[in-house]
């Protein structure tokens, strides 16, 4: 029980997710919006583990989601013939998604994590595009034709269960992944990993001299963040929509969205990705309804203003404002 107060900051995060779930369950027509918001929160939360805590921006991040999507797709399409596996195929799919995104992150990390700051960002920019062209060009995993596995999912789970998985349980799993990512973030913050990451984010050379094996901690954060992305891809992009096409899952657009969410909410904070995900998702959704076609035109200056006014993000600003008050320990 002594450990409990340390994990109190998870309360507002979980509360936000529960509220989103309740709105989706009880309000007509809200499911789709909530599921989009949850995806953005989960994306931000997973991305934040590496980008927020180390300060390194990985422009190829979406490739980890892509790998996760392929992991699940491969498991379903290749194992569907083994009927006795049943629902375990999905479980194996999650495991494969994690393994594949972890392996990719190790390969990328081994090269790119030797570089610093902007050089790291530039080195990672090509990862998603390179992977897409590799899959298409070398005709790996059906190449550019992609995989459609709605029928396989029906065979494995039965038509009704498969439909429930796509339209309901996949979204619940996204929620679970978002909560998992938040828990991992706070766990890191409360252990030596978090202190080491903060130190290396602020001053890598000083951190080394202080006895911190910066490479080790960067790799820990990178792999954690990538495997969470793998799970998210397997859920939101494979189970929710049972098909995969290379151009869709290696689209850099999602990396950019992850960066915006993390920066908007507050990079390196626990609450940041939730706030950023909500603000970004809601504005994107409503702007596209009320001012279709203009949403980016309006959104760009809004982001600019927020970044200029609150360089530490919304949560970073709240953290500074609530210093010394009772709310302080909830805003982390």
């Amino acid at each position: 029980m002594k450990q409990l107060p340390k994990y109190l900051p998870l309360a507002p995060v979980f509360a936000a997710y529960v509220v989103m779930f309740l709105i989706a369950e009880n309000m007509e027509g809200m499911w789709q919006l909530m599921s989009m918001l949850l995806f953005y929160c989960a994306l931000g939360q997973a991305f934040n583990v590496f980008m927020g805590m180390t300060g390194y921006v990985d422009f190829g991040y979406v490739a980890f989601l892509g790998m996760g999507t392929y992991g699940m797709a491969l498991s379903i399409t290749r194992l569907v013939q083994y009927e006795f596996l049943g629902v375990w195929i999905i479980v194996i799919g999650f495991a494969l998604a994690m393994v594949m995104s972890t392996l990719l992150s190790m390969a990328v990390g081994a090269v790119a994590l030797r570089l610093r700051g902007a050089y790291f960002a530039i080195a990672t920019i090509g990862v998603n595009e390179g992977f897409r062209f590799l899959i298409e060009g070398a005709r790996i995993w059906n190449g550019s034709e992609g995989m459609i596995f709605t029928a396989d999912l029906n065979t494995i789970l039965g038509r009704e269960a498969a439909a429930a998985l796509c339209t309901y349980w996949a979204d619940i799993m996204v929620l679970v992944i978002a909560a998992l990512a938040a828990s991992v973030t706070l766990f890191y913050m409360r252990t030596k990993v978090g202190y080491a990451l903060t130190a290396l984010r602020e001053d890598e050379d000083a951190a080394k001299v202080m006895g911190i094996n910066v490479t080790k901690f960067k790799i820990i954060a990178f792999i954690t963040s990538a495997s969470l992305a793998g799970l998210l891809g397997a859920t939101a992009w494979a189970l929710k929509t049972p098909y995969v096409f290379p151009p869709e899952v290696f689209e850099i657009h999602y990396t950019i969205e992850a960066i915006i969410i993390a920066m908007l909410g507050g990079a390196g904070t626990l609450l940041g990705p939730v706030v950023g995900g909500l603000v970004y998702g809601l504005s994107k959704y409503y702007l596209s309804i009320f001012l279709p076609g203009f949403q980016l035109l309006i959104f760009a200056p809004v982001i600019l203003v927020i970044i200029v006014l609150f360089p530490e993000g919304i949560v970073g600003m709240l953290k500074a404002r609530t210093k010394g008050t009772g709310v302080e320990r909830f805003i982390v």
Binding site: Y195, A199, R201, E202, I212
Partner: peptide
């Protein structure tokens, strides 16, 4: 480590 508090900075010294 500018964004960390004085206490956290000093704790990093002890930790590693």
């Amino acid at each position: 480590f500018a964004s960390a508090t004085v206490r956290e900075n000093i704790a990093v010294g002890a930790m590693f």
